[in-house]
């Protein structure tokens, strides 16, 4: 069962092509690493799936549907930017998510906040960058979505919290959901990935399962990445 599918997906900004003729089918029940150097088109691909960008040509479908209200309800999207309003308290943001997403689980969110020692009454303004990222990730993972799009989820988070977050990602998603994680911190997330997609300069370089890579290349994903994208 495919959750995300693209057909000749192309996106250009003016003359610059960010993604070119991408064809892929992402099945449910997998954790996929979307890997590539800076500016390779990872974020563009995720934004197209999230419905924040419109393709220049080709198509992208989520659960068979073009991006729109219905697909947005199925997707839990973590942007690379901190997208929460600074003046809000964590409890207010939880109320916001609860209002707009029927699949939001407040208890799950409150438990995670407790585990990471975040006070729900604090305003975002008073938090460090890393703490804000944690809050955002908690909100995104507290939904029972069908597709999680995590754009650079662990960049600013300390290693201890990183482990906790990766653990919640594995334990939180249902069997019929898929998780797409875009990052260049490959070594840190390699252990939880089922599949990987390498993209470079807007083109699909490699798409494979992690087991396959270990068998055929006899390398870790991190090792292969360093080899493929050697400067």
């Amino acid at each position: 069962m495919t959750i995300l599918s693209t057909k000749n997906l192309t996106k250009s900004y003016g003359k610059k092509t960010a993604l070119s003729q991408i064809n892929m089918d992402i099945p449910r029940g997998r954790i996929i690493g979307l890997l590539g150097p800076n500016g390779s088109g990872k974020s563009t691909l995720i934004k197209l799936a999230a419905g924040l960008l419109v393709p220049t040509s080709g198509e992208i479908t989520i659960d068979g549907l073009a991006p729109g209200v219905d697909t947005k309800a199925k997707i839990s999207y973590l942007s690379e930017r901190s997208y929460l309003s600074d003046w809000m308290r964590v409890i207010e943001i939880i109320a916001f998510f609860e209002d707009f997403y029927p699949d939001f689980n407040r208890i799950k969110a409150e438990n995670m906040l407790k585990d990471l020692n975040i006070n729900p009454d604090d305003r975002l303004k008073t938090m460090s960058k890393g703490t804000k990222e944690k809050v955002q990730l908690i909100l995104v993972m507290s939904r029972q979505a069908q597709l999680y799009l995590l754009d650079e989820p662990i960049g600013g988070v300390d290693p201890a919290a990183r482990d906790y977050i990766l653990n919640t990602i594995i334990t939180n998603y249902k069997e019929d959901a898929a998780v797409i994680i875009s990052t260049h911190l490959i070594a840190d997330i390699e252990q939880i990935l089922d599949d990987i997609i390498f993209i470079n300069q807007g083109e699909l370089v490699l798409s494979s399962s992690v087991d396959e890579i270990r068998e055929t290349h006899n390398k870790s994903v991190d090792g292969l990445f360093r080899e493929v994208f050697k400067c």
Partner: peptide
């Protein structure tokens, strides 16, 4: 940046 949240909400 706040637009990233607003435009990913399931609203028209």
């Amino acid at each position: 940046d706040e637009g990233y949240l607003m435009f990913s909400l399931p609203v028209k």
